[in-house]
Design a protein around this nucleic acid. Structure first.
Length: 823
DNA sequence: AGCACGCCGACT
DNA sequence: GTCGGCGTGCTC
């Protein structure tokens, strides 16, 4: 005799019991169960019902169940929620990999893989079985019964508990249950379900119905009309048939009772790709450069093995068309594709482009969809009804089978890194998925990340260059302005004389301008306005952050600290101070200085509500407003044909955010912002204002010289041991007692560095850039390590050891491996 | 996370 | 003697 058993992982676990558990599959459920399906299982002493997922099914000899060395009594699975896989083949392998790689639970990973709102909620109902109860000795029990009687003898468990206000409520219910006074029923509800309507169809064959009609077995005209409609249409919704046949629901009930028709559920498709019908478009004829790129990439796709490619194509070189035709080629091979884009570029125009090319073969996944819409899109993918998924970060988990291609557009974007548990990087996950599936992974960017480009230079990734714009519009002319000279000449405004002049000219000529100011963070750095000197950490070469409270400068990597200087250590000037102006201030300044120009502002404050973003952009475009002031969100997407001037107010303000990627980000952003100018026929100009005229990232951005920037940056990364030469891990501790948090962090230090390898450096603990958040103090440790595997091993070990202590003292700890944002 | 089990003090 | 407090450890 063999018994079927299932290896099950549970949802909503802590690390302590995040394991595989073996359950017996009862005979009645064997037909519905499969790997990756969702089940309800009894768990723990009280056999509370938990939601779980079947990872493996295996037959076991019945005898060996009991002879098991551990002598575990296996419990049976209680219920199979859906008779199909919610986690498809390769995602099961991915699950194991992610749990290890990101030091999280199965549960954390599963939640990434499923659409939100699918999880079951347990609803317990307490019912009074006998209203003729005798009084109980214990007053609490009587109280519960009284309360139940008041509401008609039946009540939801939680509601009842609220009504009674009894300590040990659970025990009381148990006692009442034991003496037969109440029953407790459990049912499980899901937040979202497929949207469905009730429909009817014939319950007999067409021939039988036709015969019945001809023999006058059906006499009533209402019945005949209904049956005739159903002979022409297999399945019709109840609402429709009532309308077309002009009958009421009682007619349908009668027909159903006599066995002519039966009720069925029709599952509807909510469509996020609005009801608009898009006109079908064909492939554009590729330029010579696009054709060359395509040929190379298609060749790689054809090999059917795991390969990585980077398309380094300047803005406007037509990468999207390459993506579209590559995906098309992937379809021809009978395989499917995923396209990842940054959330911000998932605009209606972007979606339209895909839908008009591929029609119903496209599914879209992003956070703007409602729960129901997301569920429907996910289900379409899971059922294999679409062939390409376009989506933001989480779309990397889309349950696509026969995956042949994953494309990551704007590969350098930080939004591919998750900042919440599990802190995964969609680029790494995509790479793993492609590896499992022998698929092609394509990265695309005008300004590739240093990490990716390094791997391309090393030959790990194939490099495809696209250097021309098909519409041959010229690259904008970039002028750098030294703000130190402006100060010397008595200009204390945030606008250089040149910029003021150009803004006036542009407005007079009816052309538009964009002023760009990066978001000023909570942390401020100190710069000398006379010589441009910035205070940096001698160890880490990172800008020191000013803390007003203590009037000190602190390094957020290693904790190095000095007193805030009154004079510039380099030139002795007293014009040294923390730096920064907000967009609001800039808007005011423009109104004062250029009163004849119209201004619109776009930043976090003004794009508060849902469509404000689109609205501001379209107002700027359509009302021909002279100047738009904004933060990085204006740097992306959207072609403004009439914008001929872009002003970057403080190119170096982002250079000193206290992050080793600051130079990379400055370069990327400046390049992108500059790309906003002169997208139309008229030539564009870019004015870059800076205090650091010799900073390589700014200089290279002005020259639009990616290679020049990269060659400098990679040297610095290597010298200081930053990625891609090392892995960085940040462990953050937080809690209400400042001292305890610090001590906990400090105690972990030795554990981390114990018999450390030569390439293992532990820095800190130091205060986090946000030292106190929501009443909790925050400290962190930064680790540099060459070997990622060993780093993960060590972190896992330490976290398992420290977890209990952390929990007992009401502190929390989080780990992030290679964070994108060090702040 | 729950829940049981177990060990201790304070009460009918 | 029993009830209920919480510390400890396991959950297929």
């Amino acid at each position: 005799m063999t018994v079927l058993t299932a290896s099950v992982v549970l949802l909503n676990t802590t690390r302590a019991y995040d394991k595989k558990y073996t359950y017996i599959i009862p005979d009645g459920l064997a037909g519905r169960i499969c790997t990756g399906c969702r089940v309800l299982v009894p768990f723990g002493g009280g056999s509370t019902v938990k939601e779980g997922f079947v990872l493996e099914i295996k037959p076991v000899d019945a005898g060996s169940l009991r002879n098991d060395a551990k002598n575990i009594e296996y419990k049976p699975i209680k219920q199979v929620l859906e008779p199909y896989s919610l986690i498809k083949g390769d995602n099961i392998e991915l699950l194991e990999w992610m749990k290890r790689e990101y030091i999280c639970t199965y549960s954390d990973v599963i939640k990434c893989m499923l659409p939100p709102g699918i999880n079951v909620k347990t609803v317990k109902t307490v019912k009074l079985t006998d209203k003729e109860f005798k009084a109980f000795k214990k007053q609490d029990l009587n109280r519960i019964v009284e309360n139940l009687n008041c509401v008609g003898g039946e009540c939801e468990y939680d509601e009842l508990r609220g009504m009674c206000e009894i300590k040990g409520f659970k025990g009381c219910i148990q006692k009442l249950f034991e003496c037969g006074a109440v029953t407790v029923e459990e049912c499980y509800q899901q937040k979202v379900n497929a949207k469905s309507v009730k429909g009817v169809s014939l319950a007999r064959t067409r021939e039988e119905i036709i015969e019945a009609l001809e023999n006058n077995a059906v006499k009533r005209i209402q019945h005949i009309r209904v049956l005739e409609i159903l002979l022409d249409n297999e399945l019709v919704s109840v609402a429709d048939i009532q309308r077309f046949a002009g009958v009421t629901s009682s007619v349908l009930d009668t027909l159903s009772k006599y066995g002519y028709i039966c009720y069925k559920t029709i599952e509807l498709q909510r469509n996020p790709i609005k009801d608009r019908e898009y006109e079908k478009t064909e492939h554009l004829t590729p330029t010579a450069e696009q054709a060359a790129a395509l040929e190379k990439l298609m060749g790689q796709l054809d090999t059917g093995t795991f390969k990585e490619s980077l398309i380094h194509g300047i803005t406007g070189s037509g990468k999207t068309e390459v993506y579209l035709q590559l995906i098309s080629h992937c379809f021809d091979m009978g395989k499917r594709a995923i396209l990842l884009v940054p959330e911000i570029s998932l605009t209606p125009q972007m979606v339209e482009r895909f839908v008009s090319r591929f029609g119903k073969r496209v599914a879209v996944m992003h956070s703007r969809l409602s729960l129901g819409e997301r569920f429907d899109q996910w289900r379409l993918i899971n059922e294999g009804k679409v062939d390409v998924v376009v989506g933001a970060r989480s779309a990397v988990f889309a349950p696509v089978t026969h995956l042949g291609l994953v494309i990551i557009d704007e590969e350098h974007e930080g939004s591919y890194k998750s900042e919440a548990m599990p802190r995964y990087n969609a680029k790494e996950v995509a790479r793993k998925r492609c590896f499992i599936n022998n698929a092609l992974l394509v990265y695309g960017s005008a300004t590739p990340s240093v990490d990716t480009y390094y791997r391309a230079k090393n030959g790990d990734i194939d490099l495809v260059e696209m250097k021309n714009r098909p519409n041959t519009s010229e690259l904008p002319k970039v002028i750098m302005v030294d703000m130190r000279l402006e100060l010397e000449n008595g200009n204390k405004t945030p606008f250089s004389y040149l910029l003021q002049e150009e803004l006036k000219n542009n407005a007079a000529n009816g052309q538009q301008s964009i002023l760009f100011l990066n978001r000023r963070g909570f942390s401020t750095f100190v710069i000398c306005r006379n010589c441009g000197y910035t205070m940096k950490c001698p160890e880490c070469n990172i800008a020191l952050t000013f803390h007003a409270k203590s009037d000190r400068l602190i390094c957020h990597y290693c904790g190095f600290t000095v007193k805030n200087p009154a004079q510039c250590p380099s030139c002795g000037s007293k014009h040294i101070r923390h730096f920064g102006v907000g967009t609001q201030k800039i808007e005011e300044e423009i109104r004062n200085r250029l009163p004849e120009s119209s201004v619109i502002r776009m930043d976090i404050d003004t794009v508060g509500y849902k469509n404000a973003h689109e609205e501001i952009l379209s107002r700027f475009k359509n009302e021909n407003i002279n100047i738009m002031v904004g933060t990085q969100m204006i740097a992306k997407g959207h072609d403004f044909l009439n914008v001929t001037l872009v002003g970057v107010l403080a190119a170096d303000s982002m250079l000193n955010t206290g992050d080793f990627r600051a130079n990379e980000r400055t370069f990327q952003l400046l390049t992108q912002v500059a790309g906003r100018a002169g997208r139309g026929e008229k030539a564009g100009r870019v004015i870059v204002q800076t205090y650091n005229t010799d900073e390589y990232s700014i200089l290279a951005a002005c020259r639009q010289d990616f290679t020049g920037f990269y060659n400098q940056e990679i040297l610095i990364r290597e010298r200081l041991g930053y990625p891609p030469f090392n892995n960085i891990a940040v462990i953050t501790f937080s809690g209400r007692k400042d001292r305890r948090v610090f001590e906990t962090a400090k105690d972990i230090g030795p554990e981390l560095s114990e018999d450390a390898l030569p390439d293992f450096t532990v820095l800190g603990p130091s205060r986090c850039p946000i030292p106190k958040l929501a009443g909790k103090y925050r400290w962190r440790i930064v680790i540099k390590a060459g070997d990622r595997e060993k780093l993960i091993e060590r972190l896992t070990l330490v976290s398992d050891k420290v977890w209990k202590k952390i929990k007992d003292e009401d502190m929390s700890m989080s780990m992030d491996i290679n964070p994108y944002n060090m702040l």
